[in-house]
Design a protein around this nucleic acid. Structure first.
Lengths: 350, 350
DNA sequence: ATCGTAATCCGAAGCGCTTTGGATGTAAAC
DNA sequence: GTTTACATCCAAAGCGCTTCGGATTACGAT
C-alpha cells in the first residue's frame, strides 16, 4: 500500500502542512521535527506523488527535447551520449527528460503540444538552423528553452554551441602551416548553423593568410554520404585539383573518404584531408583521419543541463551561453603538399 | 490565459462532468453535445492539464527507458532510431517517453525511483543480460515492462528480441555452402543474451552439418574494439588458421577488421568474414562487409511501443512476444576458401 | 395513467500535494 | 505586567481533472 502525506503525517501526529514543509526544507519547522519527519518518511518508504505535486505547484519537473524524426546520419552517434549527460545532471535536480521525435513538417505542432499541454517546463532545441522557426516560436510564446547551436535571432536566448568558426580556422591554419595554398572546402548547406560558421572560419583564415579563397574550391554538398562522394569527384576532375581538403562534417566526410579510396588515394600521400568532427574511432581504417574534434556528447549534455537549470532558475538568458572549444585531432591524412618533401607517417593501430 | 475545464464548461452552459465525458468519448453524452463541446474546445484552445488528469486517474501517461550510462560503443548508433520509432508510436496514444541513464551499479535504484515515484506506467528494459536482475526486480514488484532482449527468466514477461540463434545459423550455413569447414567465431561474453544465442546458432549449424565445432576456433572477446583486434591476432597466429570467421557483434567486428587490415588482408581474398549486425554503412570502406542484418531501429522502436501498449492494456504478457528476423546482408568479404576457385567480386561503391 | 427503460446530464467527492493566513506558545523587550 | 518578536505548527482552500451515484426527461409499453 502506497503511503501518502496524510498517512505519514498521521503516523507522526503532525499536520500535513508541517510534514510537507519539513520535507521541503522550509525554515518554519524545528530541527527536531524535521529529523523525526525524515526518519519516518524513510522508514515508511514515503515517496511524494509527483503528479499531485506538479498539479499543486504548476511545474512539470520535466524538460523536453524534440528530436528530428528519422535523422539517421552519423551525427546521431552522439545522441545517446548527450542524453546520458543531460539526464545525469537533471536527475540530481529531480527533473525528468522527455523525448519526442517529430518530422520537420509537424515540428512546431509537437512543440505546441508540449508547451500547451504543460508537459515540460523547458525545451531543448536540437539541430538549430541559421533561421530557425522553432526559436522564433518559443521566443514569441516566451517559453523557456536552450538552443543546441546558435541561430541568427537577435533576441537574447540561452544557447550551447561549439566554436565552429574557430574550428574552421584551426583546420585551415594547420593546412597552411603544412605548406598548402590550394585548399578546398566541402560544406553542408549554409542554412545550417554549423556549416555557416565553419565556412566563415575557413574563409577568414585564408584571407588572414593573404589568400583570396577560390570559389571553385568551395563546394556545397548535401548532408549525406553521396554529397561528399560526388563533391570529391568534382574536385579531382579539375584541371588543377587542390592539394588539401576540409570537409565540414563527417557525414559527407565518409562519402569523401570513399570517393578518395575509389580514386586510388592513400592516406599520407597526395591530397591532405581534414574532416570536421573526425571520423568516429569506431570506424575501421588502417589509418586515422585528421579531424577537428569537439567535447564529448556527455560533456555537452551536462553543460546543456546546467544551462537549462539556469533558465528555470530565472537567470537572464542573455548570460546563459556556453561555447565548446574544438581542437585538432591528430591523424594520418594530412601532410605537406605533394610538391614539397613528404613527411613520413606511422601507420595507425587500434 | 490558460483555459481549463471549468471555463470551457461554463462557456457551454454544461457541467464539467459532461464536458469531460464528451471529450473522453463516453457514450452517455449525445452526439450533438459532443459536437458542440469539441468545437468549443478547439476554438478556445482547450488543452487538458496532464498533471491533473494523471492525479485523478492514477496514470502517468508515460513510459520510461533506463539507458546504461556512458555506453558509447557502436550499438548506440541505433539508439536514436529506436527512440524515434518508440516516440512516434507512443505519441499516437498520448504517452510520453521518459529517458533516464544510469550507471550499472545504481541501476536498480533508478528503477526503484521511477516506479515508486509513479513517474511512469511501464518500463522498457534495454540491453538485457542472460540473468538480468532488473527483470527479476520488476517481476517481483509486478511492474509492467517490456524487455528488449530475452533473458533466462522462466516467469512470463513481454519481450522484443531478434532471432539471434537463427542469425548465427544463417551465417554459418552461408559459409558452409561456400565450402568452408574451419569456421571461427569471435563472440562477446556469454552472459550477454545475444552472444549466448548467436553462439548457440553457430554451434548448432555446424553440428547439423556433421562438423564438431573446434573449441580452438571459438574465442570470447570483450565487447570492444580491442577485443576483436586481439582475437583476430590469435586466430591468425595459429598453425592452421580458419578459412572463415564470424564475429558476433560489430563492435569487436570493427577491431577485427582493423587487425585483418594490419595483417595485409584484403576483402575477397583469404579469410572470409561475416560480421553480425554488419559494419554500419556510414563506415568508409571500398568494400562492403558481409553481415547478418536486422530490422532497423525505427521498426524495432515501433514494435516495442506496440508491446508496451499491449502490456498497459492488460494483455497477458505471455502472449506479448516479438521476434525480429535477421537476414544476410550481401557484401564482399566472404567467398570460397582459398584452396577452392576464387569467385571474382566487384568492388563496392557508395 | 403508470411503469420501465434508455438516453442524457450533473453534483459532489475525491486524487495527493502546496501554500496562504493565521493560531499558539515562549522568551526577550519595555 | 504588557508588548513585541520569534519560532512552530496547522486548518483549509485550492490545483484541474475524473468518476460515482444519482436526477431528469422522453417515450413506447402496459
Amino acid at each position: 500500500m502506497k503511503v501518502n502525506l496524510k498517512m505519514l503525517s498521521e503516523s507522526l501526529g503532525l499536520s500535513q502542512t508541517t510534514v510537507s514543509r519539513a520535507l521541503n526544507g522550509y525554515s518554519d519547522v524545528s530541527e527536531a521535527t524535521r529529523q523525526r519527519v525524515s526518519e519516518a518518511a524513510k522508514k515508511l518508504g514515503y515517496q511524494p506523488n509527483p503528479q499531485a505535486r506538479q498539479l499543486a505547484t504548476g511545474r512539470a519537473d520535466a524538460i523536453g527535447i524534440v528530436y528530428p524524426f528519422g535523422a539517421s546520419d552519423i551525427g546521431d552517434i552522439r545522441f545517446g551520449e548527450v542524453v546520458s549527460g543531460l539526464t545525469e545532471r537533471l536527475a540530481e535536480h529531480n527533473i525528468d527528460l522527455l523525448i519526442h521525435s517529430s518530422r520537420p513538417d509537424v515540428e512546431l505542432d509537437t512543440y505546441r503540444r508540449l508547451i500547451d499541454g504543460r508537459r515540460v517546463d523547458a525545451l531543448i532545441v536540437a539541430r538549430t538552423r541559421v533561421d530557425d522557426p522553432r526559436i522564433r516560436f518559443l521566443q514569441e510564446r516566451n517559453f523557456p528553452f536552450v538552443a543546441y547551436g546558435r541561430t541568427n535571432s537577435r533576441l537574447p536566448y540561452a544557447w550551447f554551441d561549439f566554436d565552429n568558426e574557430g574550428g574552421g580556422r584551426m583546420a585551415v591554419e594547420r593546412l597552411l602551416a603544412l605548406g598548402h595554398r590550394r585548399i578546398a572546402l566541402i560544406h553542408a548547406p549554409l542554412e545550417l548553423n554549423f556549416a555557416m560558421q565553419r565556412h566563415r572560419g575557413f574563409v577568414a583564415a585564408l584571407r588572414d593568410a593573404g589568400i583570396e579563397p577560390d570559389p571553385e574550391l568551395i563546394l556545397e554538398a548535401p548532408l549525406n554520404r553521396i554529397g561528399g562522394y560526388e563533391a570529391v569527384g568534382k574536385l579531382l576532375a579539375m584541371k588543377k585539383p587542390p592539394t588539401a581538403l576540409l570537409v565540414d562534417n563527417n557525414v559527407a566526410g565518409v562519402g569523401a573518404l570513399r570517393a578518395l579510396g575509389d580514386n586510388g588515394w592513400k592516406s599520407g600521400s597526395g591530397l591532405s584531408l581534414i574532416v570536421y568532427d573526425g571520423i568516429p574511432t569506431e570506424i575501421p581504417l588502417t589509418y586515422r583521419v585528421t579531424g577537428v574534434v569537439q567535447p564529448t556528447g556527455e560533456q555537452s549534455g551536462r553543460t546543456m543541463a546546467d544551462l537549462v537549470l539556469g533558465v528555470l532558475a530565472g537567470k537572464p538568458v542573455a548570460d546563459l551561453h556556453m561555447l565548446g572549444q574544438p581542437h585538432i585531432g591528430e591523424g594520418d591524412t594530412d601532410g605537406p603538399p605533394p610538391a614539397a618533401a613528404r613527411r613520413p607517417r606511422a601507420k595507425a593501430i587500434g
